[in-house]
Each structure stands twice: as C-alpha cells, then as structure tokens.
C-alpha cells in the first residue's frame, strides 16, 4: 500500500515546511508557558474578570483558568498553534493531487508502476506522521516550558478569623511574602496528553478535507481556497452558535465543537489522567464522552481520505497545463 521511494520523496518535499512549523510550535509553546510565569495569577484574574460577559465564547469557564494548569492549557487554543497546524494540513493535503497536477509532476510519477491509491496513501502517511510530530512538538514545548520555568507566588499572611463576623483578618500589615517555586510543582505535563491528541484529531480532519478537495481538482489555489472557505464557514458557524442561543443548533454542525483541548485538561486535572480517554463518562457541558470528540474528527478525516481515494481513482488525469 505504501511506496518507500515515494515516502522518501514526500519527506524531502515537506521537510522545510515541517521544520519551520515545528520550530515555531515548539518555541511558541515554550515561550507561552514562560509568559504565564510573568503574569501574576492575581493580575491575570483581574484582567479576565474584565471580560466576564464574554465568558460564553470561552471554551471553558473562567474560573477553571485561574490555575497554572488551566493557563498553560490555553496554549492549545492559541491562534499561532492552530495556524501552524492548519498551514501544515492545508499545504500538504492540497499538494497530493492538484498540487502535483499543477506542477506537472504527477504524470511522470504515475508513469511508474504505482497505483493511485499507493500514491495517495504514501502522501497521507507522511502528512499524518508530520502532523503527529507537530502536535508532539507542541506538547514537548509545553513540557520544556513547564520544566524550565519558575513562578513567584505571594505567601498568604497568617490570619485570624473573627468570631460571629466570619471575617479573616491578617495578623501582619507588612508586604506579602513572595516565594519562588518551580512550575512543574504546580503543573503536571501529562495532563496535556489528551489535548495534544485532540489537536492531532483536529488537524487530521483538516488534512483529510484538503486531500479530498485536492483529489477532485486540478488547481492547487482552488483546493486551498475551498478548504479555507469551509474552515472559515465552520468557524463562523461556531462563533454564531456560541453568540446567540437561538443559533446554538449551529454548534452541532461545525467541527470546531469537537475541538476541546482546554476541556480535556480540565477533565484530566479534576477526574484523573485517564478520564479524557473515556468513551463512557459524562461531564458537565459535554453531550458526548470526552474521547468521542477527537474520534468524531478522526472518523470524518478518514471518510475524507476514503472519498479522496475513490475520486482520485475514478477521475481522468489531465495533461499538465
């Protein structure tokens, strides 16, 4: 099903994009964690409180973010992370057929004794492995950030509770004492495994869609355009579904609803590391079990790849332009 020479060719072809996306994701995830340490939790809380009315747009409730674990978990929803993953998926997915057709190289490759399915699967293998590595690099960046960062925390002054009034009174009026501690003492990196998998599933779906559009098209720019148009449409549907109660049915029609990395972190931190991998458990604000969401994305991605294979095998290959 796979051709090792094609695999080698595709690895060579995509290595530059992979290296740039990988370096960006790793460095960003690391820096993002370091930035968490710069902003005092109290300050962060104060800032976030200003945006309470927009809480409904957030993937999880704000209170869950007032922990280092929650703040680090926001990395998976950062636009740069999403952008890099989407760039990889659309660039690689759109390349498989319409990209090669546009460059005119498909003819020479398919003049060799390889099947179209073999070509598509070899390409998909490199793209999916690349995607998996990119997601792992985000996790690795978070891990390195967590292990390399120290945070300062104010030590709460000793207090005394006044009877009847139930008020805590500090016993000292001095500046609160600060203590420095390692972030790894506050954050368990394993909590982000499920989020990393969710990010992979998200990318897998986008990759599948881009590959499908590529398999039926002959112009790469049109493939990219169609994929981006679908992506934006789904994003708008997600935004509208979140914004207006009357439009919340749109949430069930967009794949963005299946991307819940912060929720996965929350579940893992509250219910244990294995909880996000459950197909049976139910949690607040979740219609399905936690693992169902990435599995839906992966199933949709697999369907897209299957459709791409059928269409690519059935279609006529036009001569290079």
């Amino acid at each position: 099903m796979l051709n090792r020479f094609l695999l080698r060719k595709y690895i060579g072809q995509s290595s530059l994009l992979f290296l740039s996306c990988g370096a960006t994701l790793f460095a960003f995830a690391w820096i993002r964690v370091w930035v968490v340490s710069l902003l005092d939790m109290g300050q962060f809380q104060a800032i976030l409180e200003q945006f309470r009315e927009f809480e409904k747009f957030a993937p999880i409730d704000f209170d869950s973010l007032f922990t280092y674990t929650g703040r680090v978990g926001m990395t998976f929803d950062e636009p740069i992370v999403i952008l890099c993953i989407v760039i990889w998926c659309i660039a690689r997915g759109s390349d498989v057929v319409s990209g090669e057709l546009g460059r005119g190289t498909l003819e020479m490759v398919l003049a060799q004794p390889i099947s179209r399915t073999q070509l598509l699967f070899s390409h998909a293998t490199v793209s999916v492995l690349g995607l998996a590595l990119l997601c792992l690099l985000v996790w690795a960046g978070v891990g390195v950030g967590v292990y390399a960062t120290e945070v300062e925390e104010s030590v709460p002054p000793p207090t005394i509770r006044i009877p009847f009034f139930e008020i805590d009174m500090p016993l000292t009026i001095n500046e609160p004492q600060k203590q420095t501690l390692r972030l790894r003492d506050r954050v368990d990196v394993n909590l982000y495994a499920a989020s990393t998998f969710n990010l992979f599933a998200f990318g897998f779906f986008v990759l599948g869609v881009a590959s499908f559009f590529s398999s039926i098209d002959r112009y790469r720019w049109r493939t990219v355009g169609a994929t981006v148009a679908l992506y934006i449409l789904q994003m708008v549907m997600y935004g509208l579904g979140k914004a207006a109660e009357s439009l919340d049915y749109l949430l069930s029609m967009t794949f963005f609803s299946c991307y819940k990395p912060q929720k996965m972190v929350l579940i893992a931190s509250q219910e244990g590391l294995l909880a996000p991998w459950s197909l049976s458990g139910s949690f607040a604000d979740m219609v399905l079990s936690p693992l169902a969401y990435p599995l839906i994305l992966i199933s949709l991605g697999l369907m897209s790849f299957l459709l791409a294979t059928v269409c690519f095998n059935k279609r006529d290959l036009p001569a290079p332009l």
Binding site: E107, A111, S115
Partner: peptide
C-alpha cells in the same frame, strides 16, 4: 494499469520533474 506500466516506459510531451531534486 499498474501491471501495464511495469512493462512500459513513458515520456510525456511536457515532462516535468520534482523541482526540489
């Protein structure tokens, strides 16, 4: 067509090759 292309060498009219190689 795979078995066929095992027996045939083909030069397209506008042969284009991977530019990165």
């Amino acid at each position: 067509s795979v078995a066929l292309r095992r027996q045939v060498a083909y030069l397209p009219g506008d042969a284009r090759l991977p530019r990165h190689m």
